[in-house]
Simulated assay, not measured.
Amino acid sequence: AVGWCIVAARSAKPWRRTLTRLGWLQFLIVMGNAVLGGITVLTGLNPYSVAGHFLLATSLVTVTTITWQRTREGDTAAKPRVPAPVRGLSRALLATALVLIAAGTVVTGSGPHAGDSSEIKRMPFDWATTAHVHAVSAWVVCALAVAMWLVLRVADAPADTRARARDLLIVLLAQGAVGYVQYFTHVPEVLVAAHMLGSCLVWIAVLRVALSLRERPAAEAQIPSQGDPQLSSV
Rank of each mutant, 00 (worst) to 15 (best):
A1V: 13
A1D: 14
I6C: 09
R10E: 14
W15D: 02
W24Q: 05
L25D: 01
L25V: 09
V30H: 04
N33S: 09
A34C: 10
A34E: 06
V41Q: 08
G44S: 02
L45R: 01
P47V: 00
G52P: 01
L56D: 00
T58H: 02
V61R: 03
T62F: 11
V63Y: 02
T64S: 15
T65Q: 12
T67W: 13
W68N: 06
Q69G: 04
T71H: 09
T71N: 09
G74Y: 05
K79S: 10
A92L: 15
L93R: 01
L93I: 08
T96H: 10
P112A: 09
P112C: 01
D116T: 05
E119C: 01
D126V: 07
W127A: 10
V136D: 13
W139R: 14
V140W: 05
L150P: 00
V151K: 06
V151S: 10
V151H: 04
A155L: 04
D156R: 14
R162I: 04
A163I: 00
A163L: 12
A163G: 05
R164E: 08
R166I: 02
D167S: 11
L169H: 08
I170G: 01
Q175F: 06
G179L: 04
Y183K: 02
H186K: 09
E189V: 10
L191G: 09
G198P: 04
A205E: 05
V206W: 01
A210P: 01
S212T: 07
R214A: 13
R216I: 08
P217N: 04
E220V: 12
E220Y: 02
S225A: 15
S225Q: 10
G227N: 14
D228T: 05
P229R: 05
